[in-house]
Nucleic acid binder design. Structure first.
Length: 308
DNA sequence: AAAAACGCCAACCGCTCCTGG
DNA sequence: CCCAGGAGCGGTTGGCGTTTT
């Protein structure tokens, strides 16, 4: 299969973006809004294909993007969501609006996957063989090695906020005023497809099932057996996917809407989640499980000595 | 001090999905 | 319904910086 026509054109530049190109792109988007990427290279004179422009915007220039410094909470959420959804980075990113799918994917591939593999190799082989996915989720939080190379505490991360990265943040800030005035649009994903999406990954369901630590249930702060089973039922998967759809629409329906969320940050998301959960009670359990539990486990993780 | 090995991440590639005609 | 073009997604890679030998 051939490449998209735009990338075949002679004179299309590849490789790292220069600050000048970024400014041109940001200026254009500031004026016309994100979308219609096909016309971006033509109208700006950028020697980049439309795809490249879109990626540059969504992965780097879009306001509200948080770079580096994955918090233990974010890490926990990624692990949870990866077990639940598989390598659906865009879906996972919809739960971490300040992170791009590319960023999450990179972090998974460079840090989390390694940690998990390391953990598996350290496990009893018998345990590792049968219910790997169960351990994957439930045990991954036992990984006490927070200070991994490249993590927040590592000097390497400080280097990420290079001079140029800072400049793009400044560019992004300039856009905030414009973003606020952008209207929010919604774009619902067909639920049937989302059902397939969730059910397709039976391992994820297994993981979710296995990941039901008795301890936390006993605490009564999280979910009961019945609630947990109900989460796994078809109806409530609808709710989960409804949530995902809603998040996705925020992200891909309109970039402006996504940045609107980004700008208002976590407080806005918490507020929005609260409103949504009022409409969809079963979802509350899922999100509670996802958000509270991972945070709690990570806190617990911090107190224990390193495992590796 | 120099070279090799390693790690990270931005960007690319190829494929699928979506949408409008 | 079919087709073509655009957009989005996930896997992969190249380049660069850091660490190790």
């Amino acid at each position: 299969m051939g490449r998209p026509p735009c990338c075949d054109k002679v004179g299309i530049k590849k490789g790292p973006w220069t600050p000048e190109e970024d400014i041109i792109l940001v200026s254009y988007i500031q004026e016309h809004g994100p979308g219609n990427w096909r016309s971006v290279p033509t109208n700006t004179g950028l020697l980049r294909c439309s795809k490249s422009c879109r990626l540059r915007w969504t992965n780097y220039l879009r306001p509200g993007i948080k770079r580096g410094n994955f918090t233990p909470h974010e890490e926990g959420m990624i692990i949870h969501l990866q077990a639940l959804l598989g390598n659906k980075w865009a879906a996972i990113a919809s739960y971490l609006p300040q992170r791009t799918d590319n960023d999450i994917k990179n972090y998974w591939n460079t840090h989390l996957k390694k940690k998990i593999n390391k953990f598996h190799s350290a496990l009893d082989p018998q345990m590792a063989s049968d219910s790997k996915s169960c351990q994957f989720v439930s045990k991954s939080f036992s990984d006490r090695d927070i200070d991994i190379p490249g993590h927040a505490s590592s000097p390497r991360f400080n280097q990420n906020s290079s001079m140029y990265a800072s400049s793009t943040e400044n560019i992004s800030r300039l856009l905030e005023g414009w973003m606020r005035s952008s209207p929010k649009t919604t774009q619902s994903e067909p639920q049937e497809k989302l059902h397939q999406h969730v059910f397709a990954n039976s391992a994820a369901a297994t993981s979710l099932h296995c990941y039901r630590p008795e301890v936390e249930q006993e605490e009564g702060d999280l979910i009961s057996n019945e609630e947990f089973e109900s989460i796994l039922s078809f109806d409530n998967l609808t709710s989960i996917t409804w949530e995902k759809s809603s998040c996705d629409s925020t992200q891909k329906g309109s970039q402006a809407a996504a940045t609107y969320d980004d700008i208002h940050g976590k407080a806005h998301l918490v507020q929005e989640r609260k409103q949504r959960t009022e409409k969809n009670p079963p979802l509350m359990f899922f999100e509670k499980w996802l958000l509270d539990e991972s945070a709690g486990q990570v806190e617990e993780m911090m107190e224990l000595p390193p495992m590796f």
